[in-house]
């Protein structure tokens, strides 16, 4: 399953790169980095179905909640 996903993503990337008229390395790099990200994103939930969604702003949320509660409203 994982292999298939990776294969499909790689195939799409290769196909699209082949379609490009010109391939400056900066563009190709960004493209590949993003594609690697996408593939990772596709693979991770398959490997670990209970993967938690990261909440980078979670601490702010907690802080805010505390403030709200102190304020008494909501």
């Amino acid at each position: 399953m994982v292999g298939l996903v990776i294969l499909v993503y790689a195939a799409v990337a290769a196909f699209e790169l082949w379609l490009w008229a010109e391939r400056p390395w900066q563009k190709v790099l960004l493209y590949l980095v993003l594609f690697a990200g996408a593939t990772t994103l596709a693979v991770l939930p398959v490997l670990n179905p209970d993967l938690k969604v990261p909440e980078p702003l979670g601490f702010l949320e907690k802080l805010l909640k505390r403030l709200w509660q102190k304020g008494g409203s909501v």
């Binding site: 990337a13 594609f35 990200g37 994103l41």
Partner: peptide
């Protein structure tokens, strides 16, 4: 040129 990877990232993103 970055539309394709982003769109393909949306598929797992939306499920996850």
């Amino acid at each position: 040129f970055v539309v394709t990877p982003l769109a393909l990232a949306v598929i797992p993103g939306s499920q996850w």
